[in-house]
């Protein structure tokens, strides 16, 4: 069997790309989670963005595996390992990172073309950041009760989120995504692919180019993220209504207390009996 195969990655090579991106980006996001951010006024200086790692890898290898690997790596290393798993918010992060990296990877036809790499890197970053900003604004709007009634809050949310977007794009986007990607892609091109048993990506390869189908997939993914938000709002009004119904009856709450207390007592007794039986 030859060590260098055709550009279309096999299943095991896709798994290799997944594992590679996951470990590297996971490690990097772990650092960013640990390094304290420092703020000067509203400007936040943080090494928040190691996105250049999955961007680089998605331009060199199969974009989808790299994108999924990056999102999983971030989820596992920096959220689950540090116990910062946030439920619904993580789904959106997962989707936005996947889409951003995937778009960047599909945009690049020829990794040796620096202009193309640069445009793709900044496009992917901007797409990811923009989606994150939209979701963030929506989340604060839904979570805070009487959002419009609190003086100064709506403006401050829009202003801080919009500012954070621009700040991230211009500061982190250029220094931590664009420049390292421009440095790493040409340097790694042709060197890292043989290590995974693949041929380097060329202009004619099948994985490059942004097809309408790929764009459609990305749009559907983002719609999923928004639908998750909307579902959360719909669910919120539903549960609120139920809570109001429950509040009308103190008796019902008292009943619940008695029932659960009974359950605790029964379980304690059963446990004791079980232990006694085990001893005898």
């Amino acid at each position: 069997m030859s060590t260098v195969q055709k550009t279309a990655a096999t299943q095991s090579q896709k798994l290799m790309i997944f594992v590679l991106t996951m470990s590297l980006y996971g490690l990097a996001t772990l650092f960013t989670e640990l390094i304290p951010k420092f703020q000067v006024g509203l400007v936040e200086f943080s090494v928040e963005y190691f996105l250049f790692i999955p961007l680089t890898l998605s331009m060199l290898f199969d974009p989808l595996s790299a994108a999924l690997g990056a999102a999983t790596g971030e989820l596992v290393f920096s959220e689950i390992m540090l116990g910062q798993f946030g439920g619904l918010g993580e789904l959106e992060k997962f989707l936005t990172v996947t889409i951003g990296v995937y778009i960047a990877g599909r945009l690049v036809r020829d990794p040796k073309n620096r202009a193309m790499v640069g445009v793709a890197a900044i496009t992917g970053t901007a797409a990811q950041l923009l989606m994150g900003t939209i979701v963030d604004i929506a989340k604060v709007q839904f979570a805070v009760e009487d959002f419009e009634a609190v003086a100064g809050l709506p403006e401050s949310v829009f202003a801080t989120e919009g500012f954070a977007f621009l700040n991230d794009l211009l500061f982190s986007g250029i220094f931590f995504c664009l420049l390292p990607t421009l440095y790493l892609v040409p340097k790694l091109y042709g060197k890292i692919e043989p290590l995974l048993g693949m041929a380097p990506r060329v202009a004619a390869s099948t994985t490059s180019g942004l097809s309408p189908k790929a764009i459609l997939t990305c749009v559907i993914g983002f719609v999923c993220a928004i639908v998750a938000e909307l579902a959360a709002t719909a669910g919120m009004s539903l549960i609120d209504w139920e809570a109001e119904w429950a509040e009308s009856g103190t008796a019902l709450a008292a009943g619940m207390v008695v029932a659960t207390a009974l359950a605790v007592i029964i379980l304690l007794v059963m446990k004791k009996n079980g232990e006694r039986n085990a001893v005898c």
Binding site: M16, V19, S23, F175, L179, L184, L188, K191
Partner: peptide
């Protein structure tokens, strides 16, 4: 910061080798 960025270059190559070993073992 530049050193941290640059040190990802050898790290990427090493991890690529390692992930190939892992996947082949799997």
């Amino acid at each position: 910061v530049k050193i941290i960025m640059e040190s990802f270059y050898p790290l990427m190559l090493n991890t690529a080798k390692r992930s190939r070993t892992t996947v082949e073992a799997l």
